[in-house]
Amino acid sequence: MNDAMLTVATALAQIRAGVEDFGGRPINGTLVLDNNIEFLPRGLVATAIEAKNCTKLRYLPKDLHAGRLDLSGCTGLTSIPEGLHCFELDLRGTSIEHLPLVHVQNRLNLSNNIHLKSLPRNLKVGSLVLRGCSALESLPEGIDVNFLDLTDCVNFRRWPSTGRISVGRIVARNCINMPNLPNWLGELAQLSVRGCSSLTELPAGLVVHSWLDLGNTEISCLPADSQVSQLRWNGVPIDERIAFQPETISVSEIIDEVNVERRRVLLERKGYEEFFAQAEAKELDRDRDTGGVRRLLQMPMPNDEDLVCLAVQCPSTDRRYVLRVPPTMQSCHQAAAWIAGFDNPDDYKLLKET
């Protein structure tokens, strides 16, 4: 062992003693910090540093060097030094608002940074994870990544005019305000825009070698020059007819489908209201509420639980709705109570009467 190296035990003892400068002496091993640590000394060099849930940690030294740096749960950390170099950086659940330009070779994880508002121009990293960054509205110009995860970035709206995302995967699930995808996308292995309810079209020339998940989007067709190996709807493989022509799905096709997950997708695409309008369903119960007649309908499903739905009418709009309920429901009132969140139907009745 190099005499200049510090053991993990020695390094921890010096940090606890308040040593302010390690002078660049490398630490031989993974440094796991105490949760009550308030600062890191200057000249700190380590193969890996784990500072999980160090909520009192407020800043990092500018000359910090670590191959793998885990700062997840450091809620008191509002910034990191510009130019930080590491192989892997975990900043999940910190309080960073504006990320400076950092040099992360492999994976940068910023999940659940609810205050994060901006990323630096020309950010380059192998894998960028932004799950749950609910304040983030855009990505920076010149972004260069292979894998991008924007899951639950509910306020994300704008792609940069230039960038590179190719070879790997984009997961943009539940980006409900994302109106489009950039035209400069390269070839991808997988693409998920599941739950992107504002997305109505895909960019021309899109190439996805493995699968494209477009569940619960408003996309009505694939671009003519696109190349997509497999379509999925909420994780279930489908074809273009199911995706873009749900009106062609028949009741018998749904009932005869042996794959339970695919059958549920067929039902979702056709819609419960249209399904029961065409199916010969059994009426379990009928009553009236302020909207008019309510009906509890049942349809047996092979190799699956019975499909039971409550058909109701909105008193203010006169629109009819067919809402799925558990197959154990026996009455319209019980089903309506369950929809309203009541386990005991009597509680729902008392609430309505008061």
Rank of each mutant, 00 (worst) to 15 (best):
200 T>A: 14
150 L>Q: 01
123 L>W: 06
94 T>A: 12
91 L>Q: 08
222 L>K: 06
95 S>Q: 08
40 L>M: 08
1 M>D: 14
246 P>H: 12
118 S>N: 10
334 Q>I: 05
300 P>T: 02
167 V>F: 06
317 T>G: 08
246 P>V: 13
84 L>H: 04
198 S>A: 15
336 A>M: 10
217 T>G: 14
209 H>N: 12
345 P>C: 08
26 P>C: 12
132 G>I: 06
141 E>V: 00
271 G>L: 06
347 D>V: 05
201 E>R: 14
152 D>Y: 08
98 H>G: 10
165 I>G: 04
9 A>I: 13
332 C>Y: 00
243 A>I: 04
74 C>W: 04
188 L>C: 07
154 V>M: 07
171 V>C: 00
133 C>E: 01
328 T>D: 12
348 Y>Q: 01
279 A>W: 10
234 N>M: 05
107 R>M: 09
288 R>M: 11
288 R>C: 14
253 E>L: 11
158 R>K: 11
168 G>W: 04
344 N>C: 14
141 E>D: 14
28 N>T: 13
62 K>I: 13
268 E>L: 11
12 L>M: 10
14 Q>C: 11
80 I>T: 12
14 Q>R: 15
190 Q>F: 07
48 A>S: 15
119 L>A: 07
109 N>V: 09
294 R>I: 03
331 S>G: 11
152 D>E: 14
290 T>F: 00
279 A>R: 05
127 S>A: 13
19 V>T: 13
288 R>Y: 08
126 G>I: 00
311 A>F: 04
9 A>H: 12
51 A>T: 13
160 P>M: 10
18 G>A: 08
108 L>A: 05
180 N>V: 12
125 V>A: 14
253 E>Y: 09
59 Y>C: 12
224 A>G: 01
263 R>T: 01
37 I>V: 15
189 A>Y: 11
142 G>M: 06
213 D>Q: 04
173 R>V: 09
299 M>A: 10
179 P>M: 12
161 S>Q: 11
292 G>W: 00
223 P>Q: 15
159 W>R: 03
153 C>S: 03
259 N>P: 03
68 R>S: 15
164 R>D: 06
327 P>F: 08
272 Y>A: 07
105 Q>S: 11
19 V>W: 00
129 V>G: 02
89 L>Q: 00
99 L>R: 02
278 Q>P: 03
211 W>C: 03
